[in-house]
Design a protein around this nucleic acid. Structure first.
Lengths: 193, 193
DNA sequence: AACCATATAGAACGGTTGATCTACCCGTCA
DNA sequence: TGACGGGTAGATCAACCGTTCTATATGGTT
């Protein structure tokens, strides 16, 4: 039963780690995490087995949230598949404009963790597959002739927008990506006059 | 005078750092760099003042090389601006296919170094501006109605392709990006029949 | 031959890392 | 009342971090 009480050490740790690993990368020190979460050292190792376990759990949590963000964003955009897909880029624009925006946390994690067998890569990979399927499904509803290919293109635009948003302040990457996304959606062949 | 003799400690360090910081990120240890370069500890601090100095110098070096790569790739593609711009994405496909490919080193550096005042950010930022100008100039030659905007879009496609190439093995991000790049180049209004 | 800049090799520094451990505190439930 | 699980606080550990140091070797110049 998950009643609404004061958050325990586990939740505090997850919340602090979500913020700190995004702001400073997965290289944050354990001490900083403990201090930010106001949690005893021991609790970390009891709940997550170590720093790596905490990081992977944070990724699991945020991927689930972000996937839900895609669903919510599209749901709020109505029924038209085209509008729903373009709404993703409008939402992206907002996210990039946020002062704490620092790029895609999953790309950052993948680039920062050199070991290809580290469990965090499996989490990020599955997340991308889920988003890809989400987009693909919507493209199918739109009647797109190549939904899988187009989904890959949209995902590339999302990644590009997040990267540009993190590295080129002052431009409007989401807007740029949105224009290109329109070209993706307007592929010939799905004759929905 | 820079005759062709056996590479000194400085060059060996730069070469080792270029490889290791790309393979393992800028978080590589000094010991690993020294061992890979077969260089005495002291040489690092005499030549670069410290690890940060070495890293920044590596970024300066590789950005110069990569900018030259853009020029060379476009030069080899002939005179037609359109072919020259699309050739960039063909070259990207090759780079992504290379076994040692691990994404964009500059994006990785920007995401890994949290301190916004770290000198490495200035290097990467200037690099992106230079590439942007390169693309913009070519778009101008093409007679594109919005060369600056289109250059931003092409850069976004490049970043997206590099990101997707690093995180989604099996797909062909450069090919996807190339298709979208064609849409960018085909913007209406530059009446080149 | 003497000198000097430039290497190398490696000890040692203080600080920090992630992880383990002991000691204690407190609310719950038997 | 008493035991116990879960939390805190903090000492402690080995390992590693980037840096500085001394001592020594090498190669070219005067």
């Amino acid at each position: 039963m998950t009643t609404r009480t004061a958050p325990g050490p586990r939740e505090r740790l997850l919340d602090a780690a979500r913020r700190l690993t995004y702001a400073q990368g997965v290289g944050v020190g354990v001490d900083a995490l403990l201090k930010a979460a106001n949690v005893a050292r021991r609790s970390l190792y009891e709940h997550f087995g170590g720093k790596d376990g905490l990081i992977v759990e944070v990724l699991r949590l945020t991927t689930a949230e972000d996937e839900e963000w895609y669903r919510r964003t599209m749901r709020a955009a109505g029924d038209d598949p085209r509008a729903r897909l373009l709404a993703v880029f409008d939402g992206l624009a907002e996210a990039i404009d946020a002062p704490e925006f620092r790029g895609c946390r999953y790309l950052a994690a993948d680039l920062a963790v050199a070991d290809p067998d580290h469990p965090c890569h499996a989490v990020t990979r599955e997340y991308r597959e889920r988003v890809h399927r989400l987009l693909e499904e919507e493209l199918r509803r739109l009647g797109h002739p190549r939904p899988e290919h187009a989904a890959t293109q949209l995902l590339l635009l999302v990644d590009g927008a997040l990267a540009a948003g993190a590295t080129r302040p002052g431009v409007d990457p989401a807007g740029c990506a949105r224009e290109l996304a329109e070209h993706v959606l307007d592929a010939p062949g799905h004759g929905a006059s």
